[in-house]
Design a binder for these strands. Structure first.
Length: 814
RNA sequence: GCCGGUGUGGCGGAAUGGCAGACGCGACGGACUCAAAAUCCGUUUCCCGCAAGGGAGUGGAGGUUCAAGUCCUCUCACCGGUACCA
C-alpha cells in the first residue's frame, strides 16, 4: 500500500466516512406507509458469543445485504433488520466460572458484535435492533407461552431426560452428542424429572404438508420430512394371558398389518407401563434387572449396541386377534417407549430386526409372504400372502387394506398414522432464560401469571449457583420464588424452569416488523404488510430444529389470528461453511481461524464482503484463501484507478459522449448478467462479469460516463463504501442507495458477428465468422463451402446437417 | 444401513444438451525501474512435437443423441443429515 497522496484506494478512510453518513442520515430506515412493494430480507440473528464474529457470519449477512441494497434500487421498501439471540448456556457457564452477571457479559458481547457488524457496512435498520433478553421482548415470548398453555399445547410431565450433573441441567436430545453434552463434553445420564413439554406433535401433519408451498431447497425439506417421519399403518389390540389375569390388553402399532398371521411373539419397551402388571413371578427378577440395565443406558448407547439384540421374557402371553395364537411377550430395548405405542408384534419372517431377535432367542419364524428365503433373512418385499386366511393370495397393498378393514370390523384395531416427531422438551434448569410465567399454588394447582403482569422479570441475583437439586438457580432466590397469587391471595411458588434458547428465536422475525409495540407482539396491519419473510439466509445447522420450532409457533399464532400467513419464511437459503485454508473446519484448536476484524483493518470491509461472495456459490462449502482476498483487494484498487487518477481527479477518459460499439456490448451485457445473477443469488458470477467489464474498460480510449455510473451502481450492493465514494466523485450529492437500477438494451447485448464451429460428425473441423442473425439454411450452405470441410468430406456421403443458430453447424457424413 | 448433496486444470470455481476450463489465485514471460515492490500487457488443461499440427480429457463403466460435464443405468470416493421409528 502506498502512503501520502491520499488518491489511492484507501478503504480505511472511505469506509468509516460512509458508515457515519448512513447512520446520520438514517439511510436504511424503513419508511412506513409508502406504496412501494415490500421486501423482507432476514438473517438468522446470531448468539453474541464472547469469541466475536466469525468469517462465517458475514457470508450470509453479505448475501442478504446485497439483495436488500439491490431491491432498494429496484424500488422496493426493504425491511432488513438485525438483533441478538442472547439468552443461552455459554453466558451462564461464563457467569458460573467468573461470577460476572450474565446480563453484563451479554451487554459486552452484544456491543462487540454490533461494532463488528457495523464495520462491515450492512444496511440494517438499526432502529429495529432487538435482543431476546430485553424484558420488552421476552414479555411477548412469555405471552406466546401462555397462549400455548391456554390452548393445551404446553403441559407438564415426569419424563426421563438427559441429566448432566456437571452442567447441573437437563439437555435436549439434540444437545447430547455421543452420550456427552454438546457443550463441554460432560457425561449425561437419564433421570426422570418434571418438565414442560410443548405439543408440537399436534401440528405434525400441517408441518409436513405445508412444506410443499415453500421455496426451500429440497434437501432441507427432506430433512424436515424425515424428522417428522410420518408412517401409515394400523394399531392392533391383543388380549393378554398373564398370572395376574386377562383383563389387560396390549396395543401395538405396525406398518405391516398384513403380516399379522406371521407374528410369533410381542415385544414391549422396557419402560412400558404394562410390564409390571403382566410379569410372572418366575420372571420378575430377570425383568427387573433388564429394566434397570436399560435405564442406565442413554438413548445413544442403546442404539450403539444395537448390533447385538437383548431382551427378557415376561412370562405373559398375547393372543393374536386373527387366529388366537398364543404369543410370548418379551421386553427388549430395541423397542422404543417413545414411538408408536411402545409395543410391537414381532414378525421375524418379514422384519429384519425381529428376525435377528428371533434367531438369537430361538423364536419361531413364520413365512406369510412368498418371495424370499426366511431361513436366511427377513423378506420385506412384495408378494402373495400365504398361511394368512383371508389374506391368502393377496399382494402387500391389498392385504394391508383388507386387514385394516378386518381389524376395524371386528373391533380389534384400526388404521393409524404415527409420527417420529416427539413433543418438544421446553424447560431448562437454568437462570439465563425467559422465566416460565406459571404459579404453583399451595393447593397443588397451577395457574398462569396474568397477562397484564408480564413481563415476569428475571430476578436480579448477586451470584448464580446451581441449586444442586436439578432445579434451576432460580430455586435459590426465595424472595422471587415465594409469592402470592394476585387473584386468590393464596401463597404460591413460581415456576423455576426457564425457556430454552429456541424460544426467543421462534418469533423474532415478527418483532422486527413492529419492534416498539407495547400492546401487541406485532400489530395486525404491519404483520399483514410485511409477512412472510421473502428471503431468509442462515446456516444449515438450523435446518431442522429452529426452523421446525419457528414454523410450529407461527402456525399456533396463525390459529390465534395473530399472523395471517400459514408459513413464516417463504424462501430459505443455507449458506455453506467456510473452511480454513487447510480445507478443515475452522477452530481454535486447529489454529486456522480467520478473524474478520483483521481482514477489515488490512483490506477493508468491501474486500471482505466481495471476497466472501467471490469464493464460490453461496450454498457451497469452500476453503478460505489469503491470496484470494488480496486478489479481490487488487480488483477494487483497479476499479478505483479506473475512476480516479494519481492527481485525485476523475479519470479524463470518462466523458459524456464517447463510446465504442464493442464496449457498449460489454456494458449492456454486464447490466444484464449482474441483474440476473443477483436475482438468483449467484454473486460469484456477477463479480466475474464486473471484472470482465473492468478489464475491457482498461483497454478503452474513452469511457462513456453513463456506463461508468451504471458500473458503480452494479458494484454498490457488493462493495457499498467504495461505490458511494465513487458516486460522490462522479458529482452526486445524495447516497447511491435509492438511485434506480440501470436497465439494458437487449439488442446491444448481442454481437453482429459471431464465430461458430463447423463440425463433421461431432468433431470440430473449423471455426468461421458469420452474422449472428444468419438463418439455419444459410449457415448450412456457408459451412459446406469451407475449404477444410470440403477436404474432410472428400469421398464421404453427407447424411444429415444440423445447424444451431449462432452456435454451430454439424455435418453428419460417412 | 437409509435419505440428500458433491466429484471439472496446480488451486477456488465457470459452462439454457451445442467451441469444456469464463473470472480469480498461483506460476511463467515481457514492459516500466539503477534495482525491487507496486502497476500495466501477455502466456498458462495435460501429453507428443522445434513448429505446423496431432492425441487425450469433466471420479469410473455402460447407454440415449447428429452432439453429453449436463439426460438415463450401474459403480466408486468424499461431505452433510439420520439412525433398531415397527
Amino acid at each position: 500500500m502506498q502512503e501520502g497522496s491520499g488518491n489511492y484506494y484507501n478503504p480505511q478512510s472511505i469506509e468509516p466516512k460512509w458508515q457515519k453518513y448512513w447512520d446520520e442520515n438514517n439511510t436504511f430506515q424503513v419508511q412506513e406507509g409508502t406504496n412501494k412493494a415490500k421486501f423482507y430480507a432476514l438473517d438468522m440473528f446470531p448468539y453474541p458469543s464472547g469469541a466475536g464474529l466469525h468469517v462465517g457470519h458475514p457470508e450470509g449477512y453479505t448475501a442478504t445485504d446485497i439483495v436488500s441494497r439491490y431491491k432498494r434500487m429496484r424500488g422496493y421498501n426493504v425491511l432488513h433488520p438485525m438483533g441478538w439471540d442472547a439468552f443461552g448456556l455459554p453466558a451462564e457457564q461464563h457467569a458460573l466460572d467468573t461470577g460476572e452477571h450474565p446480563r453484563d457479559i451479554t451487554v459486552t458481547n452484544i456491543n462487540n458484535f454490533r461494532r463488528q457488524i457495523k464495520s462491515l457496512g450492512f444496511s440494517y435498520d438499526w432502529d429495529r435492533e432487538i435482543s431476546t433478553t430485553d424484558p420488552a421482548y421476552y414479555k411477548w415470548t412469555q405471552w406466546i407461552f401462555l397462549q400455548l398453555y391456554k390452548k393445551g399445547l404446553a403441559y407438564v410431565a415426569e419424563v426421563p431426560v438427559n441429566w448432566c450433573p456437571a452442567l447441573g441441567t437437563v439437555l435436549a436430545n439434540e444437545e447430547v452428542i455421543d452420550g456427552k453434552s454438546e457443550r463441554g463434553g460432560h457425561p449425561v445420564i437419564r433421570k426422570p424429572m418434571r418438565q414442560w413439554i410443548l405439543k408440537i406433535t399436534e401440528y405434525a401433519e400441517r408441518l409436513l404438508e405445508d412444506l410443499e408451498e415453500l421455496d426451500w431447497s429440497e434437501s432441507i425439506k427432506d430433512m424436515q420430512r424425515n424428522w417428522i417421519g410420518k408412517s401409515t399403518g394400523a394399531e392392533a389390540r391383543f388380549a393378554i394371558e398373564a398370572e395376574a389375569g386377562t383383563a389387560e390388553e396390549l396395543t401395538v402399532f405396525t406398518t405391516r398389518p398384513d403380516t399379522l398371521f406371521g407374528a410369533s411373539y410381542c415385544v414391549l419397551a422396557p419402560e412400558h407401563e404394562l410390564v409390571e402388571r403382566i410379569v410372572s413371578t418366575e420372571q420378575q427378577a430377570a425383568v427387573k434387572a433388564y429394566q434397570e440395565q436399560a435405564a442406565r443406558k442413554s438413548d445413544l448407547e442403546r442404539t450403539d449396541l444395537a448390533k447385538d439384540k437383548s431382551g427378557v421374557f415376561t412370562g405373559a402371553y398375547a393372543i393374536n386377534p386373527v387366529n388366537g395364537a398364543k404369543l410370548p411377550i418379551w421386553i427388549a430395548d430395541y423397542v422404543l417407549a417413545g414411538y408408536g405405542t411402545g409395543a410391537i408384534m414381532a414378525v421375524p419372517g418379514h422384519d429384519q430386526r425381529d428376525w435377528e431377535f428371533a434367531k438369537k432367542f430361538d423364536l419361531p419364524i413364520i413365512e406369510v409372504i412368498e418371495g424370499g428365503d426366511v431361513t436366511k433373512e427377513a423378506y420385506t418385499g412384495d408378494g402373495p400372502h400365504i398361511r394368512s386366511g383371508l389374506l391368502d393370495g393377496l399382494n402387500n397393498e391389498q392385504a394391508i387394506a383388507t386387514m385394516i378393514d378386518w381389524l376395524e370390523k371386528n373391533g380389534k384395531g384400526a388404521g393409524k398414522v404415527t409420527y417420529r416427531l416427539r413433543d418438544w422438551l421446553f424447560s431448562r434448569q437454568r437462570y439465563w432464560g425467559e422465566p416460565i410465567p406459571i404459579l404453583h399454588l399451595e393447593d397443588g394447582t397451577m395457574k398462569p401469571v396474568p397477562e397484564d403482569q408480564l413481563p415476569l422479570l428475571l430476578p436480579d441475583v448477586d451470584e448464580i449457583k446451581p441449586s444442586g437439586t436439578g432445579e434451576s438457580p432460580l430455586a435459590n432466590v426465595t424472595d422471587w420464588v415465594n409469592t402470592v397469587d394476585p387473584e386468590s391471595g393464596q401463597p404460591a411458588r413460581r415456576e423455576t424452569n426457564t425457556m430454552p434458547q429456541w424460544a426467543g428465536s421462534c418469533w423474532y422475525y415478527l418483532r422486527f416488523i413492529d419492534p416498539h409495540n407495547d400492546d401487541a407482539l406485532c400489530s395486525t396491519e404491519k404483520q399483514k404488510e410485511w409477512l412472510p419473510v421473502d428471503l431468509y439466509i442462515g446456516g444449515a445447522e438450523h435446518a431442522v430444529l429452529h426452523l421446525l420450532y419457528a414454523r410450529f409457533w407461527h402456525k399456533v399464532l396463525y390459529d390465534l389470528g395473530v399472523v395471517s400467513t400459514k408459513e413464516p419464511f417463504h424462501k430459505l437459503v443455507n449458506q455453506g461453511m467456510i473452511l480454513g485454508e487447510n480445507m478443515e473446519k475452522m477452530s481454535k484448536s486447529r489454529g486456522n481461524v480467520i478473524n474478520p476484524d483483521e481482514i477489515v483493518s488490512e483490506f477493508g470491509a468491501d474486500t471482505l464482503r466481495m471476497y466472501e461472495m467471490f469464493m464460490g456459490p453461496l450454498e457451497a462449502t469452500k476453503p478460505w484463501n489469503a491470496s484470494g482476498v488480496e486478489g479481490t483487494y487488487r480488483f477494487l484498487s483497479r476499479v478505483w484507478r479506473l475512476f480516479i487518477g494519481d492527481n485525485g481527479e476523475l479519470n479524463p477518459k470518462i466523458q459524456e459522449y464517447a463510446s465504442s460499439v464493442p464496449f457498449e456490448r460489454v456494458w449492456h451485457r454486464t447490466i444484464k448478467k449482474v441483474t440476473d445473477d443477483f436475482e438468483h443469488l449467484r454473486f460469484n458470477t456477477a463479480i466475474s462479469q464486473l471484472m470482465i467489464f473492468v478489464n475491457e474498460a482498461y483497454k478503452q480510449e474513452s469511457l462513456p460516463k453513463e456506463a461508468m455510473e451504471h458500473f458503480v451502481q452494479l458494484l454498490s450492493p457488493l462493495a457499498p463504501h467504495v461505490a458511494e465514494e465513487l458516486w460522490s466523485r462522479l458529482g452526486y450529492k445524495e447516497t447511491i442507495t435509492y438511485v434506480p437500477w440501470p436497465t439494458y438494451d437487449e439488442s446491444l447485448t448481442v454481437d453482429n458477428e459471431v464465430e461458430i464451429v463447423v463440425q463433421i460428425s461431432g468433431k470440430i473441423v473449423d471455426r468461421i465468422q458469420i452474422p449472428s442473425d444468419m438463418e439455419q439454411e444459410e449457415m448450412q450452405r456457408v459451412a459446406m463451402e469451407v475449404e477444410k470441410v470440403k477436404a474432410a468430406l472428400d469421398g464421404k456421403t453427407v447424411r444429415k446437417v444440423i445447424a444451431v443458430k449462432g452456435k454451430l453447424v454439424n455435418i453428419v457424413a460417412n
